[in-house]
Design a protein around this nucleic acid. Sequence first.
DNA 1: CCTTACATGTAAGAAGTTACATGATTTG
DNA 2: CAAATCATGTAACTTCTTACATGTAAGG
Lengths: 187, 187
Amino acid sequence: MLKYILLGFLNYQPMTGYELKNLIESSTAHFWHAYHSQIYTTLRKLEADGFLESENVDGDDKLNRRIYTITDLGQRELHDWLDQPMTELPRIKDELLVRVFFSGQREQEDILNELRFQRQLHQQKLRYYQSLTGSHLFEQIISQKASSSVLAQDVSFWSATLRFGEQYEELYIEWLSELIANLEKRS
Amino acid sequence: MLKYILLGFLNYQPMTGYELKNLIESSTAHFWHAYHSQIYTTLRKLEADGFLESENVDGDDKLNRRIYTITDLGQRELHDWLDQPMTELPRIKDELLVRVFFSGQREQEDILNELRFQRQLHQQKLRYYQSLTGSHLFEQIISQKASSSVLAQDVSFWSATLRFGEQYEELYIEWLSELIANLEKRS
DNA sequence: CCTTACATGTAAGAAGTTACATGATTTG
DNA sequence: CAAATCATGTAACTTCTTACATGTAAGG
């Protein structure tokens, strides 16, 4: 999956691993996280497979920034993936739900504290998403190469995922609040 | 994580790997999926670590059903985990959002078909969750050992996670519908 | 000069996925 | 008797996480 995120971003413009890492952190990481160690190794692998090419900028060996460029093969790989629609539901993995599921024997107060703290975190994240919606910060980040009509379309999909994030956080906050209220009633 | 799901279920009553697999499939798999291969190997590992004990029922070697029982050490491990509240947000991994994010250059119709199909899947899943809410099927499954007051508490947390599932599916359907409507307007 | 950001990597281990493999029992 | 379900496992591989490792450049 990370593979396609890297190909997807490099399809906009050539970039270094570090730039990709930062881009991912401020965008797709919210629904697909990856550590820098995985990003760098995956880039090397994509190059070995012929999907990317790279060259060491700063010529020498001192500072080794490596710029990756997508190849024709890489573009085909990306489009082949996009052309294969998903026929299943994406799988959810949510540790908090597992914890709630098995919380029957925990102390009421301990659970409440955890749920309240989680709610705070989700409120923070919601505010963060809302701040992104206003500023077009994210659009600006990639918008160097971006000049043509292609980008308008792209931007609308980016903001769709951002909208999902906002709605998801709102849902989580509501669900937590309801659960918290129910528990408080009991004590 | 699977480790704690197994300990959590075995904390209710002793069970075989196969029973655990089925239980997981009809409950926690909706927010934490695992294949049977991982379940069986993890059970072996938990036994090696002293968190579980097992004995081969059906005495002989013909049919080898193996019943696992949680040990005192296993219970402590489970409670230690529950006593350590989460201090971060659970991470989302959602392939569809990645696909939407990079869909800027896809054919309008292809995207629409994929989104409509996803909406169908989510509607199916929502109906499935709703059918569970009515019937107390799930409560019944574990409710062999379950007699005491402990269970009422447990059940309320189980249904809280089910409620999350319903609300999540509703959110996803709404988000997809909005996105679909926006795309249809354009064409 | 000290800290933060820039910049890239390797290694080890844990977790997750896919495929292969086998055999018993039950139900139609 | 054939198919579905019961029942458990191993092997190979990919992915993910955590830790280790190193060095430059820029700003206060």
